[in-house]
Design a protein around this nucleic acid. Structure first.
Lengths: 337, 337
DNA sequence: TTTAGCACTCTCTTTATTAGATTGCTAACT
DNA sequence: AGTTAGCAATCTAATAAAGAGAGTGCTAAA
């Protein structure tokens, strides 16, 4: 357990380092941090904190930087979650009040807003289709060989897909098919579309496989396909000094380009709605030099998508978490009001 | 007019520089380029080419690099447009034969293929909605306060949008509205949805403005909204030596992040189907240090989207153009066959 | 017209030097 | 026992100097 002064010193070092990106010297802490003692005393405290693993040095005679353990302690114990200005509140409110018709757009707007306010790169993904129930399926004939299938889920998600046929189909065929599909799938989880069901549909349908097959395949495809990942503010990272190394910059761009890493990151286990992964805490090898904060965006318990911030370990955790909490609150207000 | 040997020297320098990214010395050209003369002779030719503006030096005693004029001459006169290997042909063919139901997907696949084969970053955009005719509009009621509008254009593009109402609407209302909209808009260019038309619709419709207004607004919005821009292989640029400068790298990421620059680039005037813009030839200030090759992808004269390659001025124009031409040929074959 | 030869120029790399920042430790102070 | 001043030791980062290497331009000969 850290005593009060050690906590203060650790907090001051994290905040100072987050601001300046330079190792923090004992001298720098004597003023403006409410630590009423000399630099020598702070040096002693720093040495203790380093021994305990909360601080690191870049070289023997450098100032200190927080270690991952230090950041973790800061996030768990010292963080301010109301680090948000009036201007920021205004900006966020105005952005979120934009009317949108599709859930994914709302998540995108939230991700964009977070990126704008925090100056970090964000990635976002829509709600997971698996785990949702099919509420209704509608077929709309477009021309004689093309159809649109619309699938509604219980959480209000709408999925559309175009289906093309190799032969002409009639309104009547479409209607029958639509009835069959709804009959069988309504209220079912999306994973339901499995082999037995497919066989049932093939059996029941009296007409050509040329018609029924593309429908099943395309619906399966659109329901199973990975959600699109949206990126915001990729360029913002390049304003940070840690990205002045080409290797880091290249690495970062590579990560953002690898959709699987991003998707796994956003979909990984959520004990809390807001999760912080610092450096090595990230499961993915590629992310071990970065910090990630994910934010599962829910309204009334319904999953509406996930937003992730990727930045340096020297991230302004207070700002990021304050903004996320405020956005969460605001979104729930809007949805209910 | 350049004599045969000067052409050969210029061509050799462009190709050598494209390969190595190093200024080309007179010595490097004496072997392997079909130039049967000494380095001193080549030095004389190089001096002439430099005076004429086709070559540049990085410093007084360095080898030569092509100037923008040099690249332009190469592209116009010396380019090979069959610089494509059997493996590449096979790879491209297999990628393009993937069945797709939506036009935009085809353009995306083509852009992805180009990026994979050339190792440059590509951006792509779907067909322009303006300049297309509305073929049909379908309304589908989803629940009691939500509707899906599907708009078909003459080129086979399908646009969908969800519309939400503040009051309950009936199937019958939707049907009437659908009839009115089709009656008025079928066969019309998309720009048709203007003030007078809106007024006509408001007048004709007997029911609540709460119903008709969101429909018109949302349809207008979806038809006018900017096409999405898809990016492929942003990380590939970082393997090129010209991106070893942080400034250039940052610049590049900034450009890719600025959707307007990309959209303007892809939508700018097309005398030809394939257009090459070298450095300063780019209209956009941001692109003046890069080269861009755009490729308007058409089948049977129908616009299906545009793909652009962004890379260094030291781009492998022969490879890029060969690949584009082959893809163009292949896409037309597939569409017709 | 082509080529060999060579001085000249410029970059890039390596090494050395120096100034500056910060720590850790010791000893004195409260 | 905790705090502080003082100072040697350590390391970085910036600057300067020196030398190797690559390539050109020019002159004069083939």
């Amino acid at each position: 357990m850290l005593d009060e002064r050690k906590k203060k010193v650790l907090q001051a070092i994290v905040e100072e380092y987050v601001n300046t990106a330079e190792p923090v010297s004992s001298n720098a802490l004597t003023s403006n941090h409410g630590l009423d003692c000399s630099s020598a005393t702070i040096r002693n405290e720093m040495a203790d904190l380093e021994k305990a693993g909360y601080l690191d040095k870049t070289h023997t005679s450098s100032g200190r930087i927080p270690s991952e353990k230090g950041y973790r302690y800061y996030v768990d114990e010292l963080l301010k979650d109301d680090d948000i200005s009036l201007e920021e509140i205004k900006y966020i409110s105005s952005k979120l009040e934009t009317k949108v018709n599709e859930i994914e757009d709302l998540t995108k707007i939230a991700a964009n807003t977070i990126s704008e306010v925090t100056h970090y790169t964000t990635v976002s993904i829509g709600p997971k289709t698996t785990s949702q129930l099919i509420q209704e399926i509608k077929f709309v004939l477009l021309g004689s060989r093309m159809m649109l299938a619309v699938i509604l889920t219980d959480t209000g998600l709408v999925k559309e897909t175009i289906i093309k046929f190799d032969e002409d189909v009639t309104e009547k065929q479409i209607e029958t098919m639509n009835y069959m599909f709804n009959n069988k799938l309504k209220g079912q989880p999306i994973e339901t579309i499995d082999r037995p069901l497919e066989e049932y549909l093939y059996d029941e349908m009296t007409y050509s496989v040329n018609v029924i097959k593309p429908v099943i395949e395309q619906i399966k495809k659109v329901l199973q396909e990975d959600e699109k990942i949206y990126l915001e503010g990729a360029n913002k990272a390049f304003d940070l000094p840690e990205f002045n190394s080409l290797e880091v910059a290249k690495n970062f761009i590579n990560i953002l380009d690898t959709k699987e890493v991003m998707a796994d990151m956003l979909n990984s286990g959520f004990a809390e709605d807001i999760n912080v992964y610092i450096g090595d805490e990230n499961e993915k090898e590629e992310l071990k030099d970065f910090s990630v904060v994910t934010f599962k965006h829910k309204v009334n318990g319904k999953d509406l998508g996930t937003i992730g911030i990727i930045g340096p370990k020297r991230m302004d955790y207070s700002k990021v978490i304050s903004v996320m909490k405020y956005i969460n609150k605001k979104l729930n207000e809007i949805e209910k009001g």
